[in-house]
Design a protein around this nucleic acid. Structure first.
Length: 599
RNA sequence: GGUUCGGUAGCUCAGUUGGAUUAGAGCAGCAGCCUUCUAAGCUGCGGGUCAAGGGUUCGAGCCCCUUCCGAAUCACCA
């Protein structure tokens, strides 16, 4: 950062002095020099040609000479190739930069202050009728990572979850449990609460389809049969009773939901995610109705003859959107409006981010417009952090076809596989207890899963290949964790030899290209964090970490560190290693991935 | 049909605000490297019309237009 700033302002001064024109900083392009050329940083001079009215080579030559005489403490030398001005930086500059990075608590993070804007992030948003699956895993990991990224970019962050705890689907589970459950509980069955309820949801669907089939065989057409089957009618009745606060229905509903929440909490804990504030749709849907009525009075919406309420969004190029059914009950959109209202009462939100799958792009487009019309100042530029589907090698995830990947199963499998991998490893760690081994397996297994999902650009549909995800070779979490553990091992050994990480380094060390390059890449972490915040995309941090680790690995194999005889050089490499491990830990920490001290 | 998002190696994915005659990783395949700080590693080889065509300019995988292919969505479901 420092070095680049010095150069940029010097270039600016140079253009002014040489050609008498003020240029904006965005015109000054500073980039890393390609390895095949001499130097470390390159100024692209093409943008200045119109100002200089000279050939690219001459312009670069002018500028290089200016820089070398103007800031000799930064620029050691320069060379010109076509329109590219390659700068060789004074080694002491790199050493200062390295020390700066190493000594900062969290290099590249922007501190959060009293005045920082408040960002609320909604993610997870489960239904209480079935357990979490792979799609939810992607959502949770993205939400958690994004929250960390926003905070690292200097925002106050409130993590929130909206639980969809009401509606026909919940009634289906309740009904099935009443009919086929024999009073089964999580305790009596030994099942996790969310799995138990999920099983009854499936049971409902089976029996319901049988009923439909019977009716069709009796001569009813399928559409009518779907509406007339006794089970679905009962479910609807139950929903009505629920809305009327029927004590019996409400008490069963509460009991079963509590089972589910206990199950979800376990899964969230295993994934390492959490929330600051949880909202329930059962508490927000009425607020939404009020807000819609309010909008209706203001003439923002209109009522049809059958009593249903609509928003006309054709001026915005969208359709008409239903807000209240003809019977006065709420739809999804109404609930989101209600939730928004409550949230705004609770927090002074500056920015709202919804982490929701891309199948709801249209919904959020509409929600943004509606919230804006209803006077929420953050409504207009709310962010729908839209992520793609997770597909499986043999097709998409579909619950009906039994191709869902259950979150709990997945986590357990990852940890078990990590355990197996470390057992098979050639150089096994000695002197570790079984508990320690299990803890390492947990960290590594989850690291593998999280990294595999987070390294992919969130917007894209991704393919989850279970076999590949447990392969710890290549661009994977365990590869990064492993490098980290090795660095930590070196630092431990250094400490055993009585070598502390120095606060200062001799300024006349000759740096190799690889060392300079590594320091430069460390610096890039700040950019990666900023970019992740701007684009709402954690994947660039994952890929940054991988690049850094890969480069360090080559470094590691080319140079010995503890066996280096030149003491200054040894200290430099120790500081460099410490800085790399620190940056990796911070980067992976943003993704919610833990780093093992040994593995 | 409308809207939104995608298309980069056999497969999974990167590619920073447009930059350097040669577009990168990993997996899979082949060939090397453990008396040396953890070999879950490192090095080398093969593999590409960046979907297609046009435009913008000193310069395009990236920006604009057209076309083709794929996904999502357009419900009194959530």
């Amino acid at each position: 950062m420092e070095i680049a700033n010095k150069i940029v302002s010097a270039v600016k001064a140079g253009i002014l002095e040489l050609y008498g024109t003020e240029v904006s900083e965005s015109m000054i392009q500073l980039q890393e020099t390609r390895p095949e050329f001499e130097g470390q940083l390159t100024v692209v001079v093409f943008p200045f040609l119109k100002i200089s009215r000279k050939k690219p080579e001459d312009t670069a030559q002018d500028l290089g000479t200016f820089l070398k005489t103007q800031i000799p403490e930064v620029i050691q030398d320069f060379n010109v190739i076509k329109g590219f001005l390659n700068l060789t930086i004074q080694p002491s500059q790199w050493i200062d930069l390295l020390l700066d990075i190493q000594q900062q608590e969290h290099f590249g993070f922007v501190p959060v202050t009293e005045d920082s804007p408040l960002v609320m992030i909604e993610y997870s948003s489960p239904n209480t009728n079935k357990p979490l699956h792979l799609g939810h895993v992607r959502n949770n990991l993205l939400g958690w990572a994004l929250a960390n990224v926003m905070q690292a970019n200097g925002n106050k962050v409130v993590k929130t979850n909206i639980v969809n705890d009401r509606g026909i689907h919940i009634c289906k589970s309740m009904l099935a449990w009443q009919y086929y459950g024999n009073g089964e509980t999580p305790e009596s069955s030994g099942k996790k609460g969310d799995h138990l309820i999920g099983d009854y949801y499936v049971a409902f669907d089976q029996h319901y389809r049988e009923q439909v089939k019977e009716l069709v065989e009796k001569g009813m057409d399928e559409e009518t049969a779907k509406q007339e089957a006794p089970l679905i009618k009962e479910a609807h009745d139950m929903l009505v009773k629920w809305e009327q606060n029927d004590p019996e229905v409400r008490s069963l509903w509460k009991r079963m939901n509590d089972w589910v929440y206990a199950g979800f909490d376990e899964t969230y804990k295993a994934l390492g995610v959490g929330f600051d504030k949880i909202y329930y749709e059962s508490e927000t849907y009425l607020e939404g109705r009020e807000k819609v009525e309010e909008g209706l009075e203001k003439g923002l919406f209109y009522r049809r003859e059958d009593g249903s309420v609509w928003a006309d969004l054709t001026p915005e190029g969208l359709d008409e959107k239903l807000l209240l059914r003809s019977d006065g009950t709420s739809v999804y959109m109404t609930q989101d409006i209600g939730t928004a209202k409550l949230r705004f009462q609770d927090f002074p939100i500056d920015k709202m981010i919804y982490v929701v799958g891309n199948e709801q792009n249209y919904h959020f487009q509409v929600l943004s417009i509606l919230l804006d019309k209803l006077g929420f100042k953050w409504g207009k530029d709310l962010v729908h952090f839209s992520y793609g589907m997770v597909e499986l090698p043999n097709g998409k995830m579909k619950s009906r076809e039994g191709t869902v990947v259950d979150a709990d199963d997945l986590i357990a499998t990852m940890i078990a596989d990590a355990r197996q991998m470390s057992a098979d490893k050639v150089n096994k760690l000695e002197n570790i207890t079984d508990e320690e081994a299990q803890e390492i397996a947990r960290v590594v297994g989850l690291g593998a899963l999280k990294y595999f999902i987070l390294k992919v650009d969130a917007r894209k549909n991704m393919l989850f290949n279970p076999e590949e995800s447990i392969d710890f070779n290549g661009n994977t979490g365990p590869f990064i964790q492993y490098t980290y553990a090795r660095i930590r091992s070196i630092l431990r050994k250094a400490a055993e030899q009585g070598i502390e990480i120095p606060e200062k380094l001799s300024s006349d060390i000759t740096l190799s290209n690889k060392e300079i390059s590594l320091i430069q890449h460390l610096q890039g972490f700040a950019l990666a964090v900023r970019q992740a915040g701007q684009d709402y995309n954690p994947s660039c941090i994952a890929n940054y970490c991988y690049e850094l680790v890969k480069e360090y690995n080559q470094f590691y194999h080319d140079f010995s560190i503890l066996r280096e005889e030149d003491n200054n050089k040894k200290l430099l490499r120790i500081v460099l290693s410490a800085a790399v491990s620190q940056v990796i830990k911070d980067g992976m920490g943003l993704l919610g991935i833990e780093m093992p001290e040994r593995m």
